[in-house]
Design a protein around this nucleic acid. Sequence first.
DNA 1: GGAGACGAGATTGTCAACGATTTTGGATGG
DNA 2: CCATCCAAAATCGTTGACAATCTCGTCTCC
Lengths: 230, 230
Amino acid sequence: MVGARATGSDTGTDESAPGIPSAGDTRVTDLIRDAIVRGEFAPNQRLIEADLSSAFAASRATVRTALLELAGEGLVERLPNKGSRVRAISLKEAIEILEVRIGIEGLCAAKVAEHLRAEDAAEFEWMRAQMIETVAEGDLVEYSLLNRLLDVRVRELSDHVTAAGILARLHAQSVRHQFKLSARPARAKVSVLEHVAIIDAILARDPVAAEQAVRTHLLSVIGALRDLTS
Amino acid sequence: MVGARATGSDTGTDESAPGIPSAGDTRVTDLIRDAIVRGEFAPNQRLIEADLSSAFAASRATVRTALLELAGEGLVERLPNKGSRVRAISLKEAIEILEVRIGIEGLCAAKVAEHLRAEDAAEFEWMRAQMIETVAEGDLVEYSLLNRLLDVRVRELSDHVTAAGILARLHAQSVRHQFKLSARPARAKVSVLEHVAIIDAILARDPVAAEQAVRTHLLSVIGALRDLTS
DNA sequence: GGAGACGAGATTGTCAACGATTTTGGATGG
DNA sequence: CCATCCAAAATCGTTGACAATCTCGTCTCC
């Protein structure tokens, strides 16, 4: 009985309905994290250990461990002696996250441009073509996936575990705010040009240009986010 | 479950209850973190829950909670079913941390330069004078403290909680590598010039120059770290 | 003599119950 | 009618014990 009293869809009676294998071998941490990222738990919603315990058919100690880990990832807020709740990311914080990403993703992009190998270049060329095509067709969902794929590949190829870890955490926190932007066709037309610029700089093996292209893109996202919510 | 605790009028209940974590109010998490940062626990040393439990006079669950939190901060590595150990920061990772700091501290410095207030400017001028003086006198310990103070103040004044949190975590992880550099007089003479450049840029309210000065400084640190360990 | 099976010891993961703390609702007095 | 205080509920933090898992020494067999 998870009290969904905050904003969001009424979870109704069946909590573990779709796609989730009911509390089997999968770790409880992953289940709760997915539930938060997918929006099944609203921001600021209290996460009561006993309720999660029965909802996921796990012991309260297991749930407690999961909440500790998620707090370490910044997804859950733990108030001493008052319980845990889904951490709400304010607009200010969402912009802060984007500002931090300028530095870190810029670093990653520069590293990729510096050490780009031939077989990886082909993949970037493919992504560039696909992005242009999907936006031209208006397939925003597919474009969003390509967008994410570019981020992930740059992160991987940068061979920078520290940056990759930070970016993964920041992404999980801000996935909801990003979602608000990804559904806007006008936004995509601007975004694709910036992404092409990033890929071009990487393919040109120009670290400085790559870093600058990432900065330009993320500043554009910040501006769009500000416009959207003002 | 009758609460025999009278609010306000506390008659007879003894202050020092037995059995309660008599180690004091200090959180076990802080104790273990300090022990790791201060080097009392060597890198890769196994942290056995039962041992820590008796060492800090806390229950195993409390120690477990602490280890979870520290794992979230990146100070402890948790291998499933194999236990926890102090995470060792390799040279490669120390350099990675410095590279990430370029982006984030550059962002913070730019923000400080942009919104600098008069009363804060005075403090930066004081720090600049103190830094020059301590290095001239060869007081490396005091200079190291000033160095750290500058970092902390920039972080605070930037009013950027996301960046501040990441920097705090990275600092805790790399404090040992930083320590190796701070004890070198020749290094201090170079470092102080770079720090003065950062402060000058902030006082000049020049965000771009501040960011660039931070980058120059941290690249210099990276170079020194590479030279030291090659 | 060496490789693999096997069992004892050690360590973590999980569970149910207890104690402490905060919050909430209601009674009481001004 | 409102502020205050107090009891009761709700929830978290902690404890001790038990089960699952891993490590390592030893033993047997080829």
